[in-house]
């Protein structure tokens, strides 16, 4: 393939990924295309092309950052909220199902509607405390911390007068809110709960032990994920000759770094491995798949103590194809 054809084909690939919404993949290809051009085409002939690609890369960057940082989920139409409430409540009794539904709404970021639902649940003795805590969390999740703190605190004040909650429950709500405020770095002193003689010793049954509090939507950063690798097969190459694959179990894994024990008897490996060495043929075995790839030796040391003494410890950074 001529360079021109090669560039064309890479660009076509990039475009396809872009239109399919595979933005990171498109980015890699666009960058590769401009590298190819810079290396192989005289600058005076490639200026326009490079400019065009640079523009595309800039646009993509914008799209990707928007995509990685989605705004707060929009409030959905009521029918859809109803659907969520209905379809994602799994408990069989009606009250627990109502709690499920409200929690599902928070998971989908429908905080205003969820607050409404939790307020309904306040009417039910057995869910009162859990509903109250969720209401406070929703305030914090739904807007910036200063205005949400205000809303939550005024809600708490509204609950203070005797009636709805026992003083024991109010104490718990207070501690809960204090923690939320601390988490957000907001300093507000909350008014104390008035002792209420009759209810003081009443046991607090309002918090069902098994019900989890709502889980807030998870971190929006796309974190790198790696498969759990259970063993690694290394095919060593020396002097252009490939040796049979040697499979070793993973003793520890952290991200894309795996640690293996190389038995003393594997003389060939021991003689050849050293930090920085790139291994071009490595297979990573996970419980569900085998990945072909390569690895770079990050450390290779003799184990000086413990039950594996005398063997070697190999830390390998993995790269999958």
């Amino acid at each position: 393939m001529s360079i021109k054809e090669q560039v064309k084909s890479v660009l076509r690939e990039a475009e396809t990924y872009r239109t399919q919404g595979l933005f990171n993949e498109a980015m890699v290809k666009f960058k590769y295309a401009s590298e190819l051009i810079e290396k192989n085409v005289k600058p005076e002939n490639s200026r326009l092309l490079i400019e065009g690609i640079t523009k595309k890369i800039e646009l993509l960057k914008k799209t990707i950052s928007k995509y990685n940082d989605p705004e707060k989920p929009p409030e959905m139409p009521v029918e859809i909220q109803n659907l969520i409430k209905e379809k994602f409540s799994f408990s069989t009794d009606k009250e627990s199902a109502a709690l499920d539904g409200a929690i599902a709404l928070t998971k989908f970021g429908q905080f205003d509607r969820a607050i409404k639902e939790f307020k309904e649940l306040l009417k039910m003795e057995s869910f009162r405390l859990v509903a109250a805590k969720n209401i406070l969390r929703c305030y914090f999740a739904s807007s910036s911390s200063s205005s949400s703190a205000k809303a939550a605190v005024s809600q708490y004040k509204e609950w203070l007068p005797p009636g709805l909650f026992t003083s024991g429950q109010l104490e718990k709500i207070k501690v809960f809110l204090e923690n939320l405020l601390k988490e957000k770095g907001v300093e507000i002193k909350l008014p104390a709960v008035k002792e209420e003689v009759a209810a003081k010793n009443a046991p607090d049954k309002a918090m069902p032990a098994t019900k989890p509090l709502i889980e807030m939507p998870e971190s929006e950063e796309e974190e790198e994920e790696f498969l759990d690798i259970s063993s690694v097969g290394i095919i060593l190459e020396t002097g252009g000759k490939k040796h049979p694959e040697l499979i070793m179990d993973v003793s520890f894994q952290s991200g894309n770094m795996v640690s293996l024990i190389v038995p003393l008897r594997e003389k060939l490996l021991i003689e050849n491995l050293k930090a920085g060495l790139k291994l071009n043929h490595v297979q990573f075995y996970s419980p569900i798949a085998i990945l072909n790839g390569s690895g770079v030796v990050s450390a290779f040391t003799r184990i000086g103590s413990g039950p594996k003494m005398g063997n070697y410890s190999l830390d390998l950074k993995m790269f999958t194809n």
């Binding site: 599902a104 998971k107 939507p217 998870e218 796309e222 974190e223």
Partner: peptide, 15 residues
């Protein structure tokens, strides 16, 4: 499918 929606993904898968 996006990684960051893991908690809603679990909810949809349930049942």
């Amino acid at each position: 499918g996006q990684v960051q929606y893991s908690s809603t993904r679990k909810l949809v898968l349930k049942g």
